[in-house]
Design a protein around this nucleic acid. Structure first.
Length: 659
DNA sequence: CTTTCTACTTAGTACTTTCACC
DNA sequence: GGTGAAAGTACTAAGTAGAAAG
């Protein structure tokens, strides 16, 4: 039974960042070029933009435009753009297709026309030069190309800790042997006797050489990449040229799952044309397989969004090539997600009352369902599908929690009915939290845990499918994950309201935004490994602070002496000197404060990742509205990629948007 | 009903580029 | 103009959820 030291855990009081003021690293803000949007069309005048896919719904009375052919946009690279003249920041957006002003398909189909060039395969294996040798038991051994390739995968990871892990080594060795000739197999029987060092050194040298390339060489590569992107990185879907997210096939290598993965080290095999299923429209120009090869299959299924798929050999799951988040097909779905969350907002009170009632149910399954839902709602836990044991790392979500993952404290640090959670969630990220719960919940948990072993399911009468079926009855389209979206977005909106101070300048407001964002990230338990350079960069910052302090005391001393001087001399000049010294002191004090605040900010962000919530949980219209309301350029909040993904929100949200 | 399959979203990290500073 | 940190991007694993199969 796991008992964790109470001190290691991070503080996590359901979520809110401590309220210091801090400044963001950067503070050269351009004076808001006022994000002008000529009166956007209103999406709906009745009530909030309802987004119901699969239902016939004409976007308010407005006649939606037909999806018709407008010329595919040329996508120039940024360099080209700069070349063609003064910065015309405004020019691009105007010619962008506004898919959100068009009607959606209501028949479950995802497209009418789809044409693409197929995937880009991993480059073929290049055998090592003959001077780079592999040694077995101290003796040079020339490997067959197949065995050599797999050996290089291991050699490339030599510096990594996981090549020392037993499971990794065992899995690797087993799969490596499969690639060996029978001779090799009979010779190489012990991984410990394998010396990959020359190979490893060779790759390091290669990567150094790559870094040391001349400007011209680098540019050439860049141009080649750009050509590949233009050729394979886009497709035509319903008359629009859309960016593909991942048009390159995953190269072979050694699988590294996250956390304690039983399959780590296994060989991820090379994908060939005959493994590939292509999806496109019948009347499109079909992608050509590489000369001398053929596709596994070409199909024309417009009920799905993917262009290419293949089955991966580690878990046997299917991988897909799909479109970029900026595409219509992803954007519509994203928008819809937030509309579902907004519908939940309207009925969440009812649902909460209902599950509270259900805590008293005489049926065990209903009580379990109600307690689980309470956790999902209050703590933003994931649903917790069951997983095949031994196939993946041992992680859980709400429905799959086991008895060993919680501890009950009738009384803890002055609070009653505290539940202590400690488990590994998605990506083997630890979730640790101590939360006071209502007495009824507490009593129910005691009941659920009675006569169970630590590794028994806490909710033995519940799974995600049962839970979701129930949720579906409470609200159309409601599933467990909607609660995460809802609570995240709601928290952002509420925190922005609370933290934004009208009198503050733009950097301070952005700081507040980041704080609100951080509150959500904490709620959703979005963590990251502290950056490798963290300690160092923290030290650098501290050094800067110290230097600033010294500078400050110097300045103060000077001020003092100039004051004394002025007292004696009593002339204009020395008075002026005093004034300027005063100013200097003030300026330095300000700078010092900023640095200190920056340090706090960075410290607070050490293990918290803001990106995931920003990209996946926060209704972008809340952020856009906030920017508009306070005259903050959207660019301060969203970088270019993010602005492309959220173009719909940027276009449609007014400053008074309410989630 | 349970299990398996499929399609899609969400996730952290490694790598690459940009930017601020000397 | 060189360097190191920060920002941005690419990558792909790991989830959710619903449908199909057994």
């Amino acid at each position: 039974m796991k008992s964790l030291d109470g001190k290691i855990k991070k503080e996590k009081e359901n979520g809110f960042a401590s309220p210091h003021v801090k400044s963001e690293p950067e503070d050269n803000f351009y004076p808001s070029p006022k994000h002008e949007k000529p009166l956007k069309r209103k999406r709906d005048d009745d009530n909030d933009a309802e987004f119901k896919p699969k239902k016939i719904k004409t976007e308010n009375d407005k006649k939606a435009k037909k999806r018709k052919l407008d010329e595919p946009k040329k996508t120039k690279n940024k360099k080209g753009e700069v070349a063609d003249g003064k910065k015309k920041a405004k020019k691009e957006p105007e010619e962008k297709w506004k898919w959100w002003e068009e009607e959606r398909y209501t028949d479950g189909s995802k497209w009418r026309f789809l044409e693409h060039k197929g995937p880009v395969f991993a480059p073929p294996y290049e055998p090592l030069p003959s001077n780079v040798k592999f040694y077995y038991d101290g003796k040079h051994m020339k490997l067959s190309p197949e065995a050599e390739e797999v050996a290089t995968f291991f050699a490339k990871m030599l510096d990594h800790e996981y090549t020392t892990k037993d499971i990794f080594r065992k899995n690797f060795f087993k799969d490596w042997k499969k690639e060996m000739t029978s001779e090799e197999k009979s010779k190489i029987t012990d991984l410990k006797k394998c010396d990959f060092n020359e190979m490893s050194e060779y790759f390091k040298a290669q990567s150094e050489a790559r870094k040391a390339m001349t400007k011209e060489e680098k540019l050439k590569i860049k141009e080649q990449n750009e050509r590949t992107l233009q050729e394979y990185g886009f497709c035509i879907m319903d008359n629009h040229r859309e960016r593909i997210a991942n048009f390159r096939i995953e190269p072979p290598g050694l699988f590294r799952g996250r956390g304690d993965h039983p399959k780590m080290g296994m060989l991820k095999r090379r994908i060939r044309p005959q493994d590939i299923i292509v999806n496109c429209s019948k009347d499109s120009k079909h992608p050509e397989p590489p000369p001398g090869s053929r596709w596994k299959e070409v199909r024309h299924d417009n009920k799905v969004t993917w262009l290419v798929s293949w089955t991966e050999n580690i878990q046997g799951s299917i991988k897909y090539i799909m479109l970029n988040p900026s595409s219509r097909i992803k954007g519509e779905k994203d928008w819809q997600k937030y509309e579902t969350a907004r519908r939940l907002k309207k009925c969440v009170d009812r649902i909460r009352n209902q599950y509270r009632e259900d805590w008293k149910s005489k049926e065990m399954r209903i009580r379990q369902r109600a307690v689980a839902l309470y956790f999902i709602d209050k703590l933003a836990l994931r649903a917790g599908n069951e997983k095949e044991e031994g196939e993946t790392a041992d992680t859980v979500g709400c429905c799959s929690l086991r008895v060993e993952h919680i501890k009950l404290h009738p009384e803890n640090e002055g609070q009653e009915y505290v539940v202590e959670f400690d488990f590994l969630g998605k990506d083997s990220i630890r979730y640790y939290n101590k939360v006071p719960v209502e007495k009824r919940v507490f009593k129910n948990l005691q009941l659920f845990m009675e006569n169970k072993e630590p590794d028994d399911d806490l909710f033995d009468r519940l799974n995600t499918s049962v839970l979701n079926k129930h949720l579906q009855e409470l609200m159309d389209g409601l599933t467990a994950k909607v609660f995460r979206t809802y609570n995240a977005s709601f928290t952002l909106q509420q925190q922005l309201k609370e933290l934004t101070n009208a009198d503050e300048n733009i950097p301070a407001k952005i700081l507040s935004y980041n704080r609100a964002n951080r509150a959500v990230a904490i709620l959703c338990n979005h963590q990251r490994a502290p950056p490798k350079t963290f300690e160092k960069s923290m030290q650098n910052l501290q050094a800067k602070i110290d230097a600033k302090r010294d500078q400050l005391s110097d300045a103060k001393r000077e001020l003092k002496s100039s004051k004394a001087d002025a007292k004696v001399r009593r002339d204009e000049k020395s008075k002026k000197a005093v004034e300027s010294k005063k100013k200097a002191v003030q300026r330095i004090e300000e700078q010092l404060m900023k640095l200190e605040v920056q340090a706090t900010d960075r410290e607070e962000n050490k293990q918290i990742a803001l990106g995931t919530s920003k990209l996946n949980y926060l209704d972008p219209r809340i952020s856009v509205a906030w920017c508009k309301k306070w005259g903050i350029p959207v660019e301060k909040i969203y970088n270019k990629t993010q602005r492309e993904k959220f173009a719909w929100a940027i276009d449609m949200a007014d400053d008074d948007y309410e989630f």
